[in-house]
């Protein structure tokens, strides 16, 4: 009997927890704040990539450009450029803007390949 009550109590807590999370996430509307750059909508991210491309065109600093791209796509900066190109074409970016983004894409790609080729391979001794 005691065991049954304990199990029932735990189940009640779990149901309450689930309900609390649902209420907290869905029903209590709080103003959105403290969002990160990576949470921006696609068109804003595309514009951000364009800004990075414009900066890169004048300073050719690929390390900084990659670091800035990681702010919106920490795992794969190259993917954020591809998305920006697709979206840029859909949104009517000018040919010059698309070219700037393409040049950034090429540079980031080349930079990644250089890093891969420069990484020493690990040899396992027999």
């Amino acid at each position: 009997m005691q065991n049954k009550r304990q199990i029932g109590f735990m189940i009640a807590i779990l149901i309450g927890l689930a309900a609390g999370l649902v209420i907290g996430w869905l029903l209590i509307k709080t103003p959105i704040r403290n969002a990160s750059l990576s949470s921006l909508r696609g068109d804003y991210q595309a514009d951000y990539v364009l800004m990075v491309a414009e900066k890169f065109a004048v300073d050719q600093d690929i390390l900084t450009a990659t670091a800035l791209l990681r702010d919106i796509a920490s795992s794969d900066p190259a993917a954020s450029i591809k998305n920006a190109l697709i979206l840029g074409q859909q949104l009517g970016y000018s040919p010059r803007e698309l070219q700037l983004i393409t040049l950034l894409e090429t540079a980031v790609g080349a930079s990644s390949s250089n890093l891969i080729s420069a990484t020493p391979s690990v040899e396992v001794a027999p």
């Binding site: 009550r5 029932g8 109590f9 735990m10 189940i11 009640a12 807590i13 779990l14 149901i15 309450g16 927890l17 689930a18 309900a19 609390g20 999370l21 649902v22 209420i23 907290g24 996430w25 209590i28």
Partner: peptide, 19 residues
């Protein structure tokens, strides 16, 4: 009553976690 108590405790924990 223990079920209601458990439910309320869970609800409070859930709300705090979500915030």
């Amino acid at each position: 009553w223990y079920l209601l108590t458990g439910l309320i405790i869970g609800l409070i924990i859930g709300l705090i976690l979500s915030a």
